[in-house]
């Protein structure tokens, strides 16, 4: 841009305001369609959901009354919602830990100098690239109470005795939805980590080595600070995706058995769409907001700091 200013330098001198004004008009004009689309279909609905959560709106009743925080009081008094809140946190945290560990291990293995890495990589990312609803169906079939492929393999290998009904038993059902989420997310974690690793310039590592820094020093002072930003963004994205993904639970267990896999998104769908209680549904979905807010806050602060630097 500095170059453009230089080229049109004399012009700017004669009519400084006109040039800037014209440039700004052009720039905002180019942005307008995208911004407008987002304001109308993201900004407005978001504010509307705040309003809905404070009203008694239902699908049948278009004239909604303002009811203050009554919806929030009602949904928090609902033991299923409280359980959904707990399950959401358990699901996100446990799945996050497994994805980080497996993704880290896989990234470490893929960093090594081996042949056939491209082929291996393209096989390893399948879980992430498959549409999530399709994966959920494939896993539902693998967890089938009668023909479970997992049970078949595990019992033949003597890793397991008996024939558990994965999606039908409370503890196992939660384990199942976590397994599917981890299966889907670990390649993403690994690829993000690899992207982070490759962002570390080898020259810096080499010169540190020459200066006598051992592996741990290099790891601590060079690799970690350089890949931390990427890890951080990857983690935030994964958390948001996991917190708000409905398809795995919806297709695998519908929140059952006995609400042990009910999460806030499935509950919001049941109340807000299936039962038509828009106000309550919006209130349940907004319970996610206090959980999401720190995530987005850290992201913004983090991006702001980098911008300033």
């Amino acid at each position: 841009m500095a170059n453009a200013e230089l080229v049109t330098g004399p012009f700017v001198h004669t009519r400084p305001g006109a040039f800037t004004r014209q440039r700004l008009r052009f720039g905002y004009g180019m942005l307008a369609p995208a911004i407008l689309y987002m304001v109308v279909l993201v900004g407005v609905p978001f504010l509307w959901s705040l309003y809905l959560s404070l009203s008694d709106a239902t699908v049948g009743n278009s004239v909604a009354q303002f009811v203050g925080l009554r919806n929030f009081a009602a949904v928090l008094a609902d033991s299923t919602v409280r359980q959904a809140l707990r399950n959401t946190i358990v699901f996100t945290v446990i799945a996050g830990i497994f994805k980080a560990v497996l993704g880290g291990l896989l990234a470490f293995l893929l960093m090594q100098d081996i042949r056939g890495k491209k082929v291996l990589r393209s096989l390893l990312v399948i879980p992430w690239t498959l549409p999530v609803a399709i994966s959920a169906l494939a896993w539902k079939w693998m967890f089938d109470p009668q023909f479970s492929a997992i049970n078949y393999v595990a019992t033949r290998l003597h890793l397991m005795s008996g024939w558990p009904n994965w999606l039908g038993e409370p503890g196992l059902a939660m384990a199942s939805v976590i397994i599917v989420n981890v299966w889907r997310g670990f390649p993403f974690a690994a690829i993000v980590l690899l992207a982070g690793m490759s962002a570390v310039p080898l020259e810096i590592l080499d010169s540190a080595k020459v200066d006598g820094a051992n592996f741990f020093l290099r790891f601590h002072y060079i690799i970690v600070p350089m890949i931390a930003p990427i890890l951080f963004v990857g983690l935030l994205f994964d958390t948001v995706f996991t917190l708000t993904d409905i398809s795995i639970v919806f297709l695998l267990t519908q929140g059952g058995p006995m609400n042990t896999t009910e999460i806030l998104p499935t509950r919001a769908l049941e109340i807000g769409i299936e039962a038509g209680a828009l106000g309550r549904g919006a209130a349940i979905a907004l319970l996610l907001f206090p959980i999401l807010l720190p995530v987005v806050y850290f992201l913004l602060r983090f991006l702001g700091r980098r911008e300033a630097a």
Binding site: V42, V44, P45, F46, W48, S49, L52, L236, F237, V240, L243, T244, I246, L264, P265, A268, L269, G272, I273, L278, G281, A282, A285, L286, L288, F289, L292, V296, L299
Partner: peptide, 10 residues
């Protein structure tokens, strides 16, 4: 990053 789950009801 604004998830569909916050928007789908409105």
């Amino acid at each position: 990053l604004i998830p569909p789950i916050l928007l789908f009801i409105p």
